[in-house]
Design a protein around this nucleic acid. Sequence first.
DNA 1: GACAATGTATCGTCGATCTACATATCGTTC
DNA 2: GAACGATATGTAGATCGACGATACATTGTC
Lengths: 120, 120
Amino acid sequence: MHPPTIAMREPTYFVLAALLAGPLHGYAIIKRAEEISNGRVRLATGTLYTALDRLTAAGHVELVSELVVGGRVRRSYGLTDAGSAALRAEALRMSEAARLVTEAPSEPRASRLRRKPRTA
Amino acid sequence: MHPPTIAMREPTYFVLAALLAGPLHGYAIIKRAEEISNGRVRLATGTLYTALDRLTAAGHVELVSELVVGGRVRRSYGLTDAGSAALRAEALRMSEAARLVTEAPSEPRASRLRRKPRTA
DNA sequence: GACAATGTATCGTCGATCTACATATCGTTC
DNA sequence: GAACGATATGTAGATCGACGATACATTGTC
C-alpha cells in the first residue's frame, strides 16, 4: 500500500558516519565507529563487511582504493553523494524523533492518575 | 565478547512514544504513531501486536484496561516507568547520534579532493 | 449491497545484525 | 623463538524485529 518505515539501523548509520571525514578501510571503520559513538557501537566484522557490500550496491559508499599490504588487499571505502545525503536525512529523522520525546511534558504518564484535582 | 548495539527500532520507538500522553488501545496506537511522525510511521498490525507482546514481556508497557466493545475485547496499554526510561534513553541516543552528523563540517567528503590549494 | 473505517490477531517471509569461525601479518614481551 | 594482542579481511549459520498477507467482526456511510 505504502512504503515501509525503512529506517536505517544503528550499525549502518555509524558505518556511514565513520566515513564523514574521509575514506577508510574496513578495520579502521570499526575503530572509528567505536570512537565517535563513545564506545557504544562496536561493529562485528560480519556486520561491517556485509554492510559495505550492501551499501556499495545501494550506491551509498564506493571503493576508492585497493592497496596491497603484506600480501593482502586493503580496500578503502568513501561516501558517495547519495550516501552523504542518506546519512544527513537519517540524522534529521532521528533528531525529529528524539525531539518528540525530549520536548514532551515531564510527567505525562502519571497525568491520568493525578489530573483534575478540582473534581475531587 | 561485548554487548551488541541493541538500538531500538523505529516502529518500537513510536509504539512507546505514542503512549507518552497516556494509555491507548492497539488501533489507536497505530493512528497516534502516524500522527506524531507526520505520516512517516505506519505500523502494520503484525508489527504492532507482536511489539506489544514483546514490550509487555520486557516490562516496558503494561495492560491497563480490558473493556468489551461489540463482543470484542479492547485492550489498552500504558507505559511503565521502565518503558518511559527506555524511551527517554533512546531519544537521547538518537539526538547524540544525529548531532555527530548535523554538526559535522559541511563539505567533509570532498575535502580529500579539494584541500590544500596552496600546494598546487 | 458495497465499501471504508474501526479493531484484534496470526502466519510466513525477509533482511540486518550477531555469534562464531577461519586465516594471516606485524610488533612486542618473555 | 614462542606466545600474544592488535591489525586486517572474510564467510556461515542463527536470531529477531518488521513486514505483507490474511482472517474475521462490527459500525457507519453511500
